[in-house]
Amino acid sequence: MNKTNTSQNTFIIFFGYLGRCFLRAIESIGDAAVLSATSLAHLFHRPWQGKHIVLQLYALGVGSFVIIAITGAFTGMVLALQGYYTLAKFGSESLLGSGVALSIIRELGPVLGAFMMVGRAGSSITAEIGIMRVTEQLDALQMMAVNPKARVILPRIIAMIIALPLLVSMFDMIGLGAGYIVGVELLGVNGGAFVGEMIAKVTPMDLYAGWVKALGFGILIGIICTYMGYRATPTTEGVAKATTQAVVAGSVGVLVLDYILTSFFL
């Protein structure tokens, strides 16, 4: 009797916990959607936030260029090395160019680029907005009749949406260049075959797939990171937690969205 009671209790606790987590997740998603939608609506209202979008593009986009370039270069290099190793077993090294190009353009460029942006720019967005919340800077903006959604959230989301596709394209270019150097100069694959295969196998659809992904990830990261910062518990600990959560949620979100978008573009 006693035993069944405890196991029943365990079930109730388990399902209660599960239900609570689920409801809280739904609630946060709804809250984030409303927050970003009301913020983005200010794009069409005066005052125009162009200057602040440019400043954020500088902080998030230009500031991330180096890390994106390094990631892109090493991704291209390792892909060429690994691809060569595998393809050489079948004597089809000539396919190396298309292998590297398709992997980078369709998949690795957008996904790794997005990861780097979550880690570098996304976390700083969350921490910055969270600290503005803790130090009452958001309230101070309110009191100076400046809407923090329009001034703080909107420029960051927009800058993220603009910057990510541009950065991903640069990632792709640098990755392809680095792949070419390793494949052709170091491993001795025929240069003409490398470039020829690359051009022959990459279709416009592959490029669209990469760009649509980059755009989607930009929107996702922008929304998640601004939301986490804006709704952070106003304590130092709360900001730290929000930053971690933003990076985790951003990265997982990118992977889930990647699967969904990939299934559309096959």
């Binding site: 500088y58 986009g61 230009v62 260029f65 596709p165 541009l166 394209s169 640069m170 792709d172």
Partner: peptide
Amino acid sequence: FVFLGIMA
């Protein structure tokens, strides 16, 4: 930055 991205 934007110019380079668009060029790419």
